[in-house]
Design a protein around this nucleic acid. Sequence first.
DNA 1: CTTTACGTTTACGTTAACGTCAAGCACGCG
DNA 2: CGCGTGCTTGACGTTAACGTAAACGTAAAG
Lengths: 152, 152
Amino acid sequence: MTSSATTDRSGTRAAAEAGPRADPGSSPTWTIAQVAEEFDVTHRTVRHYEDLGLISPERRGTQRVYHRRDRTRLGLILRGKRLGFPLEEIRTIIDLFDAPRGRRTQLEYVLGQIDERRNDLEQRLRDVQDAIAELGEFERRCRDDLGQLDRA
Amino acid sequence: MTSSATTDRSGTRAAAEAGPRADPGSSPTWTIAQVAEEFDVTHRTVRHYEDLGLISPERRGTQRVYHRRDRTRLGLILRGKRLGFPLEEIRTIIDLFDAPRGRRTQLEYVLGQIDERRNDLEQRLRDVQDAIAELGEFERRCRDDLGQLDRA
DNA sequence: CTTTACGTTTACGTTAACGTCAAGCACGCG
DNA sequence: CGCGTGCTTGACGTTAACGTAAACGTAAAG
């Protein structure tokens, strides 16, 4: 249902149906429709992330052209969203990865940010682990109840 | 800064400043202000969760009276929020814990829901672990850069 | 009995994260 | 050249999760 949704657009401008355009010798690029489908989001969502400065695709004329870098970022964005981070915060985080690290002060700032982030993430790690553990406990009780029903 | 925010209200109606009211012989109860402060949320937030049916405190006259059950739920709600779940979804989850498990069909439904939830949570677990790992990788690179700077 | 400190309801405001038109370019095909 | 398909830019709408203000109730304290 995911890939069959694309009413065969091949033969028009790009040969492949889901991959990057055939572009021998250069780095591969994608259209907005392709990245949107690949990450299972809408065009609007992708453009929204651009509005907030989370991605900044190349412009060829008026059209957006997406590179590997943009796809990497999109992946990070969506994972951040799954973890419940607001987009603005996600932006500061992934910008960190591309931040200049030339001077020592910058590097130390980045290292400090990394530590903050890690603490945040480790809190969430505990939360998830606790939740999974409680769910397991609950399942055990349910299976007990089921056993009681069987013995009657 | 957290507990000093309470401008000494003791001696008024309850003896303890942060604990449940003195109520010997019965189960402890809390006011909305007490649970709000304990979980570091506003009254409005607590009432909002009640509006959505996430908690349903006792009413003594017009006033809300919170029991241990309500505090347990509030904890689950806030953890769910930290994990990025929408409140409506959180409601269906914690309602699951109090759901009737008398008949076999009900039990099997509950067990099915548990499985769905676990899959969801395990996805998030992977997300968090991946994020932490990448952060570690990034930190290593930064420390490398720092070493390069030191050698000059 | 008035004050004070909380608590309650009602209702409109706000922010984030998009959804949903509307209207216009741009290009490749018949 | 017109047509269809996809891309682009506004701009307004929507939902979730509260914030905030108004206006009133109430119970202990002075």
